[in-house]
């Protein structure tokens, strides 16, 4: 262990501000890259399911084709 107390650990030898901001930013970016693909997947599945249900209700498969937006 490089520090004698938790207070010293937080202070980072007077550089706590720089160290902790860097690690906080990292947490935000890592959160973004992990959540973004899943969020996009969920949104697609919800939208596509709605389109398929409308198409089923109309009994017309062409509905799926004509209303599907470009990715």
């Amino acid at each position: 262990m490089s520090f004698d107390s938790f207070g010293e650990f937080l202070a980072m030898g007077g550089h706590g501000f720089y160290v902790w901001w860097s690690y906080l930013l990292t947490l935000v970016v890592v959160g973004f890259i992990l959540v973004w693909p899943l969020w996009r997947r969920r949104r697609f599945l919800t939208e596509q399911r709605g389109r398929l249900q409308r198409a089923d209700a109309l009994g017309n498969r062409a509905e799926v084709e004509s209303h599907a937006p470009e990715a």
Binding site: M12, G13, G14, H15, Y18, V19, S22, Y23, T26
Partner: peptide, 10 residues
């Protein structure tokens, strides 16, 4: 000093 610990993410 301790600011070098940023290396572990940078």
């Amino acid at each position: 000093g301790d600011s070098f610990r940023i290396i572990y993410i940078h």
